[in-house]
Simulated assay, not measured.
Amino acid sequence: MPDRSPNRRHILKVIAGFGALAPLPLWANPMPTVEEVAFDPDIPVLGNPDGDVTVVEFTDYQCPYCKLSFLQLSDVMKEDTGIRLVLRDWPIFGEVSRNAALLTLASNSQGRYADAVHTLMTTRDRLTFRSTANLLGEAGVDIDIARGDLEARQDMLVGLLSRTEAQATAFQLQGTPGFLIGKALYKRGMTADDFRKAIAKARA
Rank of each mutant, 00 (worst) to 15 (best):
Asp155Gln: 12
Gly111Ile: 07
Gly82Trp: 14
Leu120Asn: 01
Asp50Tyr: 10
Gln72Cys: 10
Ala133Gly: 09
Arg88Gln: 13
Val53Trp: 01
Thr119Pro: 07
Thr59Glu: 07
Leu103Glu: 00
Thr81Asp: 15
Ser107Gly: 03
Ile145Trp: 07
Arg84Gly: 13
Gln154Ala: 15
Met156His: 09
Val53Ile: 03
Thr132Gly: 06
Ile83Met: 11
Arg163Val: 12
Glu138Phe: 05
Glu138Ile: 07
Pro64Ala: 10
Glu95Asn: 12
Ala152Pro: 12
Arg98Phe: 08
Leu87Lys: 10
Ala101Trp: 04
Thr132Val: 14
Thr128Val: 04
Val53His: 01
Phe70Val: 05
Thr104Glu: 03
Gly137Arg: 13
Ser69Lys: 14
Ser109Gln: 06
Leu161Asp: 12
Ile83Gln: 15
Glu79Leu: 05
Val76Gln: 04
Gln154Ile: 13
Thr104Lys: 07
Gly111Tyr: 01
Val158Ala: 06
Met121Tyr: 08
Tyr113Phe: 15
Met121Thr: 13
Gly140Ile: 05
Thr119Ala: 15
Thr81Ser: 14
Glu138Asn: 08
Ile83His: 15
Ser74Asn: 06
Pro64Met: 09
Ser162Met: 15
Leu160Ile: 05
Met121Arg: 14
Glu138Lys: 15
Gly51Met: 06
Leu160Asp: 05
Cys63His: 11
Asn134Ile: 00
Gly51Lys: 03
Leu68Phe: 06
Phe129Arg: 12
Phe58Leu: 08
Ser109Asn: 06
Arg153Gly: 14
Val55Ser: 02
Gly111Asn: 11
Lys78Asp: 14
Cys63Phe: 02
Tyr61Ile: 03
Phe58Val: 12
Val86Met: 09
Thr119Val: 14
Ala106Met: 12
Ser162Cys: 02
Val53Asp: 04
Asp50Gln: 11
Arg124Gly: 15
Gln154Phe: 12
Leu120Val: 09
Cys63Gln: 04
Phe70Arg: 13
Ala106Thr: 07
Asp52His: 09
Ile143Cys: 00
Gly137Ser: 07
Ile92Phe: 10
Asp115Gly: 15
Arg112Gly: 00
Arg88Leu: 09
Tyr65Pro: 06
Ala133Met: 11
Leu127Gly: 03
Tyr113Asp: 12
Asp155Val: 12
Glu151Asp: 14
Val76Thr: 01
Gln72Asn: 12
Val53Arg: 00
Asn134Thr: 11
Asp142Phe: 03
Glu57Phe: 13
Asp50Val: 08
Thr54Glu: 04
Asp149His: 12
Val158Cys: 10
Val117Thr: 11
